[in-house]
């Protein structure tokens, strides 16, 4: 049984466009993804494809004007707002993007201690700092005094001390030098190997491939493909969805080939396949209804033409 199961999740924001006219922005539509214990799942996609919102939806920390539909299950149990509240920071932990997510006026050691759920806070915090090779002086520092690599390890520490079984890492790698990047990735892989379920949200496919078991490709707020990491090889001939192939082909080492057009805006989504307007294979049916996510060759794809 998957530890975390997201089924047909939709997130809609109500906004006042001009005057009192409301408009709905559908940031995530019909998104489905599952996470197994001991697995590292990478969620990749361009900016604005709804990756971070998925993390916030799982943790139940979306802004007040967001409406969700669909279901999120933890160990088979459907999450209610109340249940999510009791799980976050205990069973499900977030590793945020940057040092900006730490309280600027609180010493980092104390911030890690507030995340401890079992055991003595100070002891647990020192243990985890030692494990991540953070000197004891670091616990007395303020966030602005940390280097990028140190901040990375402090943020990871907050998730570690919580003892959570599901770790959601939201863009944890930008701005790191190759050495720190390598270390950050290894730390996440290590968590997976210890039995945690890790969701790595990133737009850096190369990094994701180094540690992930599965890759979920996001486009305009939905999953277009879920594929084993090993399918991302060669010219992308093993990939299922045209967008995944285009994304793979756009990497510098794979030809650096861009495709025309851009992701549709979430306030004006087309009725049919979200990728149809940029797709070479698009036919009339593609523009009529959004295809369902279907099983294909040990993965999943949301495309009627995929083989």
């Amino acid at each position: 049984m998957p530890i975390l199961e997201v089924e047909n999740l939709s997130v809609t924001f109500r906004q006042y466009a001009s005057g009192l006219k409301e408009r709905n922005i559908r940031a995530i539509s019909n998104l489905s993804v599952t996470l197994e214990q001991g697995e590292v799942l990478a969620v990749v996609g361009a900016s604005g494809s709804g990756k971070s919102l998925l993390a916030h939806a799982i943790l139940g920390i979306l802004p007040a004007n967001a409406e969700t539909a669909g279901s999120i299950k933890y160990c088979g149990e459907t999450l209610t707002a109340k249940r999510t509240q009791s799980l976050r920071g205990r069973e499900i932990a977030l590793v945020p993007q940057s040092v900006g997510y730490l309280d600027p006026l609180m010493r980092v050691g104390n911030q890690v201690r507030t995340a401890v759920r079992n055991g003595k806070p100070a002891e647990e915090q020192r243990k985890v700092f030692k494990r991540y090779k953070l000197k004891s002086v670091v616990e007395k520092l303020f966030p602005f005094e940390l280097s990028g690599g140190m901040a990375r390890r402090v943020l990871l520490s907050t998730a570690m001390v919580s003892g959570a079984k599901v770790i959601i890492a939201d863009e944890p790698t930008p701005g790191l030098d190759p050495e720190a990047l390598n270390e950050a990735l290894l730390n996440l892989r290590e968590l997976g190997d210890q039995g945690c379920a890790v969701m790595l949200i990133t737009h850096d496919i190369d990094s994701a491939l180094r540690i992930a078991d599965k890759i979920a490709v996001f486009y305009a707020g939905t999953t277009v493909e879920i594929a084993p990491a090993k399918d991302f090889t060669g010219d992308g001939e093993h990939l299922r969805h045209p967008y995944s192939k285009a994304l793979w082909g756009a990497l510098p080492q794979n030809g650096f080939t861009p495709i025309p057009g851009s992701q549709p805006h979430s306030a004006a989504l087309p009725p049919g396949c979200l990728f149809a307007s940029r797709c070479e294979k698009a036919t009339k049916e593609c523009h009529q209804a959004q295809p369902d996510l279907r099983e294909l060759r040990n993965g999943k794809v949301r495309c009627i033409h995929a083989t």
Partner: peptide, 10 residues
């Protein structure tokens, strides 16, 4: 962001 993260920690 730091309040968001604090909420994410429960």
């Amino acid at each position: 962001d730091y309040i968001l993260f604090a909420r994410a920690r429960g």
